[in-house]
């Protein structure tokens, strides 16, 4: 019994189920108040930012689908990001890989905000091989 308690103390995540972290993959983005591209922005995100996928009480993953919205926590804020904009592993980010080059363009705060909005506005798709 004592050993189990020690294990629980050392590995707290096991007591509630695994915590899932995801990474934002576009250059900039927004954490939305509700699952809509036009919903207000709670926070601006940059590529590589880590968010925590919110779990329900039973410990199973909720609202996670490649074709829908994910409810996530970013810092103190809880909100929604399109699931297609999140990745399991840290992505290769343009503004990190080419940081000095990117900084030369003097992207201002309002540009960052607009750039985040841009990805919400795109109608995206891909033709597939049948």
């Amino acid at each position: 019994m004592k050993k189990i308690l020690v294990l629980l103390l050392l590995f707290p995540s096991f007591s509630y189920g695994q915590v899932h972290y995801l990474y934002y993959k576009n250059i900039f983005g927004h954490l939305h108040q509700s699952p809509s591209s036009y919903a207000g922005s709670l926070k601006t995100l940059s590529c590589g930012d880590r968010v925590r996928l919110i779990q329900d009480k039973s410990g199973t993953i909720t609202e996670y689908s490649k074709f829908s919205w994910s409810k996530v926590k970013y810092g103190p804020n809880e909100g929604y990001i399109r699931s297609g904009f999140l990745e399991q592993k840290r992505p290769s980010c343009f503004q990190v890989k080419y940081s000095k080059f990117f900084n030369k363009f003097k992207v201002e705060l309002n540009d960052v905000f607009s750039w985040g909005r841009l990805y919400d506005q795109f109608v995206m798709g891909s033709s597939q091989v049948r």
Binding site: L118, Q121, F122, V123, M124, G125, S126, S127, Q128, V129, R130
Partner: peptide, 13 residues
């Protein structure tokens, strides 16, 4: 796809 353009990613603004 009908025209034979496969694996083309697009974004329309």
């Amino acid at each position: 796809q009908d025209l034979g353009y496969y694996e083309v990613k697009f974004k329309i603004l």
